[in-house]
Amino acid sequence: MADKIRVRGLSVYYGELQALRRVTTSIADRAVTALIGPSGCGKTTFLRSLNRLIDLIPNTRVEGQIFLDDVDVYSPGVDVVDLRRRVGMVFQTPNPFPKSIFDNVAYGPRIHGLSNQRRLEEVVEQSLRRAALWDEVKDKLRHSALDLSGGQQQRLVIARALAVEPDVLLMDEPTSALDPISAGRIEELITELKAEYPIVIVTHNMQQAARIADWTGFFLHGELVEFAETERLFTAPKEPRTEAYLTGRYG
């Protein structure tokens, strides 16, 4: 399968602290890639360097290259704003804006210049349908997004990310703040969405990685220890450190 993203020797420093150590890997198109590892191992940093959201943290230094469709996203002349449009992101806790459901989903298209109300309505409906939320909210699009349940909010922000028609979807522990039933629905949704998008998901829930991911990478102390097809990684890890983590020897 074609690689959507190629990462070459990526190191990230927060001031003196090195958060990622020369990570090299590839992300496959139309597949789910899970990143696992103990907290503070660098998996979130990795995710946020893909859409350059770490640019917002002062004193951050990035070395190495990340190619999205053969363009290095850290090369000068790359439009960060366009990059972030192309790389959608879903965060750990649902973070809808304090606006209506409609305005949340329409936010991205609007800032990218879509002002035709009819087209906006189409995009909003389409995005909500793809996020499996349409039927639950179609009669209350003007209600505040903050009135939705946690699971609905998380699907709403997925719809919000889909509305700008990204090339890649990043998810940072998208189910960790949800109850098991809501989490199950998000997992189902991820499995559906991978038919169209490459999805990179950070999780500290190994069962979740095993359930939904095609590929899995294991991070430890800023290093990508092992990266393989999920089944292989979980059944026959090559690295002793991976095996130690999978059998519960790191916190």
Binding site: N51, V81, R84, G88, N95, F97, G108, I111, R160, A161
Partner: peptide, 23 residues
């Protein structure tokens, strides 16, 4: 998280300020 979500959607700083933060 509001700011991050807005930036992650490709908004510029000014758009984030005027359309998300100030409201």
């Amino acid at each position: 998280t509001y700011r991050q979500a807005s930036y992650a959607l490709g908004a510029t700083r000014w758009e984030t300020i005027t359309r998300v933060v100030i409201p």
